[in-house]
Amino acid sequence: MTLLLPALTARAAEPTVYPISNMFDPLSKPALMIHESSIVVSLICLVIFLLVTGMIAYVVVKFPSKGASDDRQEPPQIYGSSQIELAWTVIPILITVVLILVTTRTIGEIQDKKMPENAVRVTIIGHQWWWEIHYMKPDGKGGWITDFVTANELHIPLSPKDKPRPTALTLESADVIHSYWVPQLNGKTDVIPNHQNHMWFEPWATGTFLGNCAEYCGTQHANMLIRVMVQKPDEFEKWLADQRAAPRTPLDAIALQGRQVFFGNSCVSCHKIAGTVAVGLFGPDLTHLMARTAIGSGVAPIGQASLRDWVRNPAHLKPGVLMPDMQLSEAQVDQVVAYLMTLK
């Protein structure tokens, strides 16, 4: 498995991307706990595999018929042996007992973990085909309300082993079933409408972790990508502050025109930009669009070119996407993109 491991050197240094989401390279506590039980069962299975393959190979090599003359003599007709059959019933049961203990313990340890006071609370709402992310704050009555909203890219703080600070996710869906999966941080948990699920991360390495929606959710299931940015505590706090602030006002003329186009078309009925009349909830929140690294839930890196492509016709980058082609003129596209580029 070592061949598959990514470069381990960059860990905990400068923020970096982990492009290979290898589940045997866990960088977060629940993923490590899963990893350890996986190793037990994998090793047991490997040993059984080698033993039984050896037995198959042995009988195949040792007992072939030696041709027509040999066939004149039938081998001894043995009906069975209760002794050996009992043995190969009991030994698997013993192995199963061990596996049951490991499994039930690990299930409980991960699933029933109590979240500490300092945990970051995030609610993730799955949509066809993007993620709506709510950062929560206490409502003062023991519950939680939305602090601010972003989309697709989840930022969470580093959780040093001596001072753990987990991130607690609540998972909901707005339409069909999705599944949130970042292999190096934790296993997957389904995102189900009319049903709340929970999971948690406790990463000890900074960087960008990749994942996918893991439950088939329609046409663009493949492009419902997940990016989780694990940041050092101070960077994370700065990011939180930036997100809470309102976006800057557009500066130049062309961006102002773009703003006109944006608010003059039906963009506002689906998208939200904090502090403006755009309060749509159907599409991703665009308040701090340019603080993200990709558009279309990871279908392309963010930038003028990809934004142009997207605004001109979203289905070109992401066939089947629910955002319609707004039929804008080339000039209007330029203007809207210029406006969007100011949303930092």
């Binding site: 066939d71 004149r72 003599q73 039938e74 081998p75 001894p76 007709q77 043995i78 009906y79 069975g80 042996s81 209760s82 002794q83």
Partner: peptide
């Protein structure tokens, strides 16, 4: 068929026993 059956020589008639005969 023109074939004979190999007999295991455990007991005189034991060639088709399910082994072991006693546990």
């Amino acid at each position: 068929v023109g074939r004979t059956v190999t007999h295991l020589h455990v007991g005189e008639h034991g060639h088709r026993e399910q082994f072991p005969a006693a546990v």
